[in-house]
């Protein structure tokens, strides 16, 4: 697999320049800013950091044009989005109750073997619910793409060919953050995983999340609600065994050991890493090496600064 640099959010204390230098000094840089949706391509800040204008692959615009040009893709897309929303609502109903049950058991006044086993079972049920949700999502995606006509598929291939030629003309590809679901949708629609691994890759925030096996949405203090993390969808699987949490300081209650521990237990066997502003994590030769700022969430609820290569990453089975 290619070399990858995973970064924390880049708005404050950007580490992009450093990451780029570590991968390749020369050559044009391709960038994916589809997560910025309507603001795609407004990458002056990236250009300033790199010292040159990147080549934006414009995946969001391409997707919008596809929807404009191919009515059956538009109809299928609207139906897919509708079902995804419905599925998410249902999942959250089930998740809320399952998590409440597991949490209540974890706080049970009697600390017996039976209660411990039943608590573990309650967490297993949550993991099963998360897995089922992923499978449902995969099924909906398959249904969605099965609606494409030959003409639509050809149209997608034309776009893909152009994207491929852009990627191959560049020294590396960057994937910026933003709306992780829209970003992932574009990456999958044009089947970019095989193209992305052909060049060194830098991804941050939502871009980094999209590379994991599982995309986990999280916010411990939303405007309302319990703030239960959601195992939302399959990612591209380029960071196997990792679940990444950008903006964790703002979005996770890292000082709540019980909450952290519960999250880790739920996502096991994945390694859960926090990506603060400017953090860096490198992948090369089959090994992940944490750079500055990377922290790991541990099963006991502690948050550990990472200094040595990450061992014991468990690849997830699908």
């Amino acid at each position: 697999m290619t070399r990858i640099q995973i970064l924390g959010p880049q708005r404050v204390r950007p580490s992009l320049h450093e990451a780029r230098s570590a991968l390749a000094k020369d050559g044009t840089v391709a960038v994916i800013t589809a997560g910025w949706e309507d603001r795609e391509g407004e990458n002056q800040e990236i250009a300033r950091i790199l010292g040159e204008a990147p080549l934006d692959l414009r995946l969001f615009r391409r997707t919008e044009h596809l929807l404009d040009d191919c009515p059956e893709i538009l109809a299928a897309s609207q139906e897919y989005q509708h079902h995804r929303r419905e599925l998410r609502d249902i999942y959250n109903v089930r998740l809320t109750h399952a998590l409440a049950a597991a949490t209540e058991l974890a706080h049970h006044s009697i600390d017996s073997q039976l209660v411990r086993e039943e608590t573990e079972q309650a967490f297993r049920e949550i993991r099963r619910l998360d897995d089922d949700h992923l499978k449902r999502g995969e099924f909906l995606w398959k249904q969605f793409v099965s609606c494409f006509t030959r003409k639509s598929k050809d149209r997608i291939q034309i776009e893909r060919k152009e994207i491929r030629s852009h990627i191959e003309s560049c020294a590396m590809t960057l994937i910026a953050g933003g709306h992780v679901v829209h970003l992932l949708h574009c990456l999958r629609l044009f089947d970019l995983k095989p193209l992305l691994v052909s060049r060194p890759l830098i991804a941050w925030s939502a871009g980094a999340m999209a590379l994991c096996d599982r995309v986990v949405l999280f916010h411990d203090s939303p405007p309302q609600g319990a703030g239960n993390a959601e195992v939302f969808d399959r990612g591209l699987g380029l960071c196997p065994g990792l679940v990444l949490f950008p903006h964790a300081r703002r979005r996770l209650r890292l000082d709540d050991a019980e909450r952290v521990s519960r999250l880790v237990a739920r996502l096991q066997p994945a390694t859960c890493l926090v990506l603060p502003n400017g953090a860096m994590l490198s992948y090369e030769g089959g090994e992940w090496t944490p750079g500055k700022g990377i922290r790991r969430l541990n099963a006991d609820g502690s948050v550990e600064h990472m200094v040595s290569p990450i061992d014991e990453i468990h690849e997830e089975t699908r």
């Binding site: 939502a206 999280f218 405007p223």
Partner: peptide, 17 residues
């Protein structure tokens, strides 16, 4: 805020910039 974001949740959960 509390009412609308519960009735019609926004993409807050999806945005990681």
């Amino acid at each position: 805020r509390e009412g609308l974001s519960w009735l019609l949740p926004g993409p807050l959960w999806m945005i990681y910039e």
